[in-house]
C-alpha cells in the first residue's frame, strides 16, 4: 500500500505537535475486528473530521481515542505524542454525543456537570461554566429545566458543558445529526467561531461532508473500520482515491473502463452529469431514461447505461421523457480517476 507509506511519513513529521493520536489502534467485538487504525494524529487547535458511512466504525474510533465505554481495545492512544492511559485521557478529553444527554436539573447545573465530575465545587463549577453557555448562545436559558429545551438548545448546552472543562481534546460524535438544517447551520457557525479561538484538538465524526467543510481543516475517510484517505478537507472531498471514498464524498456515478474506454475507473458527481443533449462534449455514455424526478429548482434524471444507472442533476426542468434514449455527458474537468473498489 503506497498510500499508507505516504500517510505515515507525513504523520511522523506532524507528530511533534500532535495533541491526540493513536498507533496501531484496534477494536474488536465478538472476535470481529471493527476498527484498525495504524496511525492518526490531530494537532492542538486543529479540527479533524472523520467522514464515513453508517457502520464504518466512526463512533468506535472516537470512543477508542477517548477510552470511553467498554471497548475491546488494542494498540496505543497518544496524548502529546506519548502513550496515554485512561486516567490521562479522562482529564484531557471531553465528548459530545449524538443525543445531548442532559441530567435532571437546570441548564446551569448541566453545564457545570463536567467540572463537578472532575472535582470542582458546585459554585465554582457554575461560575466557570456560565460563560460557555453565553458563548453557545444559551446563556438566557440558564435557569430553565434542561428537559424543557428544544433539540438544538439541548445540543448547545451539551457542547457548552464539554467546553466548560477546557478540554485539551474535544470529541464530537455526530452532534448535529438530529438537528434541522437551519438550526444546524447556525450551530456550526457558532461552534466554528468558538473553536477558532481555542487551542483544543477536535475530532468530529460525521456522515455529512458539509459539516466537515464547515469545521475541519483536515478530513479522514473511514470505510469498514479503516482510514482510506486522509488530507486537507477540500482535497479529500474533491480527489477521492477509490470508489468507496468517491461515493462517500458525493462522486456517486461510477464509470468503469469498459464503458469509458479509458484506462482507469472514473467517477463523477450527479450535478456534473447531464442527460440533456447539446451540452459541451466530454465523456459521452448512451442509455435510456429510467425516470425523471423534479426537485425544487432542479431535475434529477436517472439513465440506465452500460455503467448501471447514472444520476444526472441539473437546474431547470429540462429533461427527456422516461423510456427515451439519452446520452449522459460529463466534462473532462469534472471526471476523477480512482482505484478499483477494494473488495
Amino acid at each position: 500500500m503506497t498510500s499508507r507509506s505516504v500517510t505515515s511519513r507525513s504523520v511522523t513529521s506532524r507528530s511533534v505537535t500532535s495533541r491526540i493520536g493513536c498507533r496501531d489502534l484496534r477494536v474488536s467485538a465478538h472476535g470481529r475486528e471493527l476498527l484498525q487504525v495504524p496511525e492518526l494524529d490531530v494537532a492542538a487547535g486543529e479540527v479533524l473530521a472523520v467522514l464515513g458511512p453508517n457502520g464504518a466504525g466512526k463512533s468506535t474510533l472516537l470512543r477508542a481515542l477517548g477510552h470511553l465505554g467498554g471497548l475491546h481495545r488494542g494498540g496505543d492512544v497518544l496524548l502529546d505524542g506519548r502513550p496515554a492511559g485512561s486516567r490521562d485521557l479522562r482529564s484531557a478529553v471531553a465528548a459530545v454525543l449524538q443525543r445531548p444527554i442532559l441530567r435532571h436539573g437546570t441548564v446551569a447545573a448541566n453545564a457545570a456537570t463536567g467540572l463537578q465530575l472532575r472535582g470542582v465545587g458546585r459554585g465554582e463549577a457554575r461560575r466557570r461554566s456560565a460563560p460557555w453557555l453565553d458563548a453557545l448562545g444559551v446563556g438566557h436559558l440558564a435557569t430553565r429545566p434542561a428537559r424543557t429545551l428544544s433539540g438544538g438548545e439541548a445540543q448547545r448546552v451539551a457542547i457548552a458543558r464539554a467546553l466548560a472543562v477546557s478540554p485539551r481534546v474535544l470529541l464530537l460524535d455526530e452532534p448535529f445529526a438530529g438537528l434541522d438544517a437551519t438550526t444546524r447551520a447556525d450551530l456550526l457557525a457558532d461552534l466554528r467561531v468558538v473553536l477558532d479561538g481555542l487551542d483544543t484538538a477536535t475530532v468530529l465524526v460525521t456522515h455529512d461532508r458539509d459539516e466537515a467543510v464547515a469545521l475541519a481543516g483536515r478530513t479522514a475517510l473511514l470505510v469498514a473500520g479503516r482510514i482510506r484517505q486522509l488530507g486537507a478537507t477540500e482535497r479529500v472531498l474533491d480527489r477521492p482515491v477509490d470508489v468507496d471514498c468517491a461515493r462517500l464524498v458525493g462522486f456517486t456515478n461510477v464509470l468503469p473502463p469498459a464503458v469509458t474506454g479509458r484506462p482507469d475507473v472514473c467517477v463523477a458527481r450527479p450535478e456534473h452529469c447531464s442527460a440533456v443533449n447539446g451540452r459541451p462534449a466530454g465523456l459521452r455514455i448512451p442509455g435510456t431514461v429510467r425516470r425523471v424526478v423534479p426537485l425544487g429548482g432542479g431535475t434529477r434524471v436517472d439513465v440506465d447505461t452500460a455503467a448501471g444507472t447514472l444520476a444526472c442533476l441539473a437546474p431547470g426542468s429540462d429533461a427527456p421523457p422516461p423510456g427515451h434514449a439519452a446520452v449522459v455527458t460529463v466534462a473532462d474537468q469534472h471526471l476523477r480517476r480512482v482505484c478499483e473498489p477494494a473488495r
Binding site: 470511553l68 465505554g69 478529553v93 465528548a95 454525543l97 444527554i101 465530575l117 464539554a162 472543562v165
Partner: peptide, 13 residues
C-alpha cells in the same frame, strides 16, 4: 439513556 455512562465518562467521570 443507554449512553449516559459513556457521556459521563466523556466529561471526565
Amino acid at each position: 439513556d443507554p449512553e449516559f455512562l459513556v457521556q459521563m465518562q466523556g466529561l471526565g467521570a
